[in-house]
Design a protein around this nucleic acid. Structure first.
Length: 810
RNA sequence: GCCCGGGUAGCCGAAUUGGUCCAGGCAGCGCGCUUAAAACGCGUGGUCCGCAAGGACGAUGCGGGUUCGAAUCCCGUCCCGGGCACCA
């Protein structure tokens, strides 16, 4: 028997050297007839060193990549770094260290650990989004979108983070606070760069039906896009001679509109009334943060404007108000208020003594938001409101007072940032020519070095005088560069395309190469990117497809979101001091144990609870497998096929093949797949001595052990390779995925359970092709049944072939 | 408030289409090896009786229901997690 013991570090280093030396995981763009499979984990943001979430996402992805390869696929499995961004810049502000230095140090650490983990990456395609060779093409793509009118500059009310001193995208504001630093966001009126993602709202919504994504992510995207169907209805203010269109989802309640409200930001408010009361109200509303304004139990404040508008359906004059519960960003910044059928309008009307008029019947009390027959609605009385909806819109349309309309919650993507560590926007400002794109051949606009990174409300780049002043590419006159940089989400919205042709220095990619790989077949990452990153990447994909840069309409055909790893039931955080460092675990117990354990604690889509003792259990299992392989290699002769009558161990091996194949291939159930291999190894250990006693038994033992190595390989690639080579002399990753022998899966006989009224009373063995009648006869003949029957009579029998016979006694 | 998930052993978790079997791991307990400990191996691992074979009784948040049979389906209810939240 083997004297030495399992030494994961030696084994892991050995195989990592083989894979690096032979560039095993590099893949060509040439179609070789095998089906392609693009397996991708979300790229890491390199800050500090990898944490346990990284270990998990790459462990899941690597298992899938290996599984696909061994099932005959040509697999693209690349990796890069999302390297621009605020943390590196904030670090620079504190320490003076250039963000490039801290970022690249972190990248080196990530790279080192990914190698230590033995992840099967095609390193020839590695990239960092901060490299000029990459962001040159980010800029190039920006210019293509600019040409299409999909990137534009506009003066708008934007979210300003006072701590980070930059604007934020709508998506980066959470509960009125900066997603990154938590500071309360302020509204500001600024000229900023936007991507016109709203042009794609409908397609982004519809195409969710074409992807295989988790239901909750699809729902989150749908909600975020927030499509509402309704009508635009015009209310006329005769005093000013102005028409005010409003958006409503309830044109059927128009007869119940008893007042009209403008948002405080609405440009007409002061024209309508410049009373002191109105001025004060607006000033207060505009200085309030989104958080204060959106507070849950906030009272519905507002002041009257002393004017009226005409309700187009009945000619009534209804009073106008300004109130901060109306948002300027949605619809037209003005609403018709129907207090009887809208909770907010109801609250406001109650507070301000405005008439509440029911126009839909139903519900016990007001406000009532449900359906019902219309009432107090003139000639529409008695009509079901759903039908009334259409008829009122038709009527308004014929009178030119309204039309059907659709509104979205989705806003355009604000992409400019007044920060240093990002991709420069390739635009020149010329007094004579206006905005001038930097010509393609002058790209990249290289990010210059600066001394002072501290945010001052304008980009630090404005201080780089040499860089800032350029000749206008159009007229040659004096001009200045755009000093804002791009949101890092721009960088990460197309990196998966660059991987397909990462070395290309003539274009972001060659179309043929891209179409050969896209879309990503399996994308893996955290659910925290359900809205931002995934929405932006989908938008880019569609916009580029429209320009003719690729075929795919959707970037990610399948999405898998992994759950968060906790420790002893609590979130890991530095402040709690319960953070598990992947490096420490890998150094101590080996990468295979760390990877297996994290895939074993539970289904990877669920959260898993990290337990140090649990890793030891997995490490013990791996050591048992290693020993089993060493013993089998010592005690048996290599043979091509297992010989002799199938033993329990051989059957177990085929059972495990079937189990792992289905668990991994169909439902990513890595935890039960690994449990199946554990069961197989336990079975091998148990029967080892008796099997070694005969040549046939030995051949089966060797086969079963090699099978265990083969099956554990996607999760523990080093040990899998080592053990498999020991037993077969071959490389496991070059072997096709094993196939279970169907004839060994099911036995000829099955254990049939005898139940009395659903309770188990006996079991017997029966041939799998026994008839129902025969099974029933044998069940009825059971002695134990007779004991339990206790005078009752069997009135009915339910036979489930191959499983059970349930006898109903009364 | 609305929309999704989820509550099974001391802990993490199996049970894939309504069908016996709470798989696997951890902790615990017992034994072996050892001067001892660690490591490792073996056994046990819902409760109770039993030296054992075996037997008895249980369990899926709580309360009902459907069914020959429910962790699984239906109704109600509680708790936990996540998302959205003045979007007219």
């Amino acid at each position: 028997m083997a004297a030495e013991s399992y030494d994961p570090r030696a084994i892991e280093r050995k195989w990592q050297q083989v894979w690096a030396g032979e560039r095993t995981w590099e893949v060509s763009n040439e179609d070789d007839g095998r089906p392609k499979s693009y397996v991708l984990e979300m790229l890491p943001y390199p800050s500090g060193e990898p944490h346990i979430g990284h270990l998990k996402v790459y462990s899941v992805g690597d298992a899938i990549a290996h599984f696909k390869r061994r099932n005959g696929h040509r697999v693209l499995h690349p990796l890069g770094y999302d390297a621009f961004g605020l943390p590196a810049e904030n670090h620079a502000i504190k320490t003076g260290q250039h963000p490039r230095e801290s970022t690249e140090a972190s990248i080196a650490e990530f790279r080192r650990q990914f190698h230590d983990w033995g992840i099967s990456i095609d390193w020839s395609r590695e990239l960092g989004t901060h490299e000029p060779a990459y962001y040159r093409w980010t800029q190039w793509l920006f210019l293509r979108l600019y040409e299409q009118g999909l990137a534009y500059r506009r003066d708008a009310a934007v979210n300003w983070c006072p701590d980070d001193a930059t604007v934020l995208a709508n998506e980066q504001v959470v509960d009125g606070r900066c997603e990154r630093c938590g500071a309360v966001v302020e509204p500001r009126q600024l000229e900023q760069w936007f991507f016109k993602i709203t042009d794609y709202a409908d397609r982004l919504l519809e195409d969710l039906d074409t992807v295989d994504w988790p239901q909750n992510v699809v729902t989150m995207q749908r909600n975020w896009i927030g499509r509402s169907e309704g009508a635009e209805v015009t209310f006329r203010c005769d005093d000013l001679g102005t028409d005010y269109p409003v958006f409503t989802t309830r044109p059927d309640t128009l007869f119940g509109a008893t007042f009209f409200v403008l948002a405080p930001e609405h440009p007409d408010v002061l024209r309508l009334s410049d009373s002191q009361e109105v001025r004060d109200y607006i000033r207060r509303a505009l200085t309030e943060s989104a958080e204060e304004r959106g507070a849950e139990d906030r009272e519905k404040t507002g002041v009257p404007l002393g004017r009226t508008v005409t309700n187009p359906v009945n000619g009534e004059q209804i009073p106008m108000y300004v109130a901060d519960y109306v948002l300027m960003e949605y619809g037209t910044g003005a609403i018709m208020a129907v207090p009887a059928h809208d909770e907010r309008d109801f609250e406001f009307a109650q507070r301000h003594g405005i008439e509440i008029r029911r126009v839909i019947e139903g519900g016990d009390e007001l406000p009532y938001a449900g359906d019902g027959p219309m009432t107090a609605s003139g000639r529409f009385d008695g009509i079901r409101n759903r039908e009334g909806f259409d008829r009122i819109v038709e009527w308004l349309e014929s009178d030119d007072k309204g039309r059907p309309a659709v509104n979205y919650r989705l806003r355009d993507w604000l992409l400019s940032r007044q920060r240093y560590w990002g991709c420069p926007i390739p635009i020149v400002h010329c007094d004579a020519c206006g905005l001038v794109p930097v010509p393609d051949e002058q790209l990249p606009v290289v990010l210059p070095d600066v001394e002072d990174y501290a945010p001052k409300g304008r980009s630090p780049l404005a201080a780089a005088e040499d860089w800032l002043h350029v000749d206008c590419p159009s007229c040659g006159g004096a001009a200045r560069r755009e000093t804002d940089t791009m949101d890092t989400f721009v960088d990460s919205s197309w990196y998966f395309m660059r991987y397909c042709d990462a070395g290309n220095d003539r274009a972001p990619w060659d179309r043929e190469a891209l179409d050969g790989w896209m879309p990503v077949d399996q994308y893996i990452g955290g659910v925290e990117h359900a809205i931002l990153h995934l929405m932006y990447a989908r938008f880019f994909c569609k916009a580029f497809a429209d320009i003719g840069l690729l075929d795919a309409q959707e970037p990610f055909a399948r999405l898998f979101t992994q759950g968060m790893v906790t420790r002893d039931g609590a979130k890991m955080s530095k402040s709690k001091g319960n953070v598990v460092s992947p490096r420490a675990i890998v150094d101590e117990k080996g990468a295979d144990a760390a990877r297996c354990y994290i895939l074993y604690v539970g289904h990877p889509a669920e959260g898993g609870d990290w337990n140090d003792k649990g890793v030891d259990g997995i490490a013990r299992f791996l050591a048992r497998l290693w020993r089993a392989a060493a013993d089998a290699a010592d005690g048996t002769e290599p043979s091509e096929a297992p010989a002799g009558e199938p033993t329990a161990v051989l059957r177990k091996a085929h059972w495990a093949i079937d189990k792992v194949t289905r668990d991994l291939g169909e439902r990513f159930a890595t935890h039960t797949a690994i449990a199946a291999v554990i069961e197989l190894v336990n079975e091998i250990t148990k029967h080892r001595d008796e099997l070694l006693a005969t040549p046939e038994g030995s051949s089966q033992l060797r086969f079963a052990t090699a099978t265990a190595a083969s099956l554990i390989f996607p999760f523990a690639p080093h040990l899998g390779s080592e053990a498999y080579e020991l037993l077969t002399g071959r490389r496991v990753w070059e072997e096709p995925w094993p196939r279970a022998d169907e004839s060994l899966l099911g036995a000829d006989t099955a254990e049939i359970v005898v139940q009395l009224n659903g309770k188990l009373v006996d079991r017997f063995q029966a041939s799998v092709d026994s008839t129902d009648a025969e099974l029933e006869r044998r069940a009825r003949a059971s002695e134990r049944l007779a004991d339990r029957l206790d005078g009752r009579e069997i009135v009915k029998a339910i036979v489930v072939p191959g499983k059970l016979v349930n006898l109903v006694g009364r």
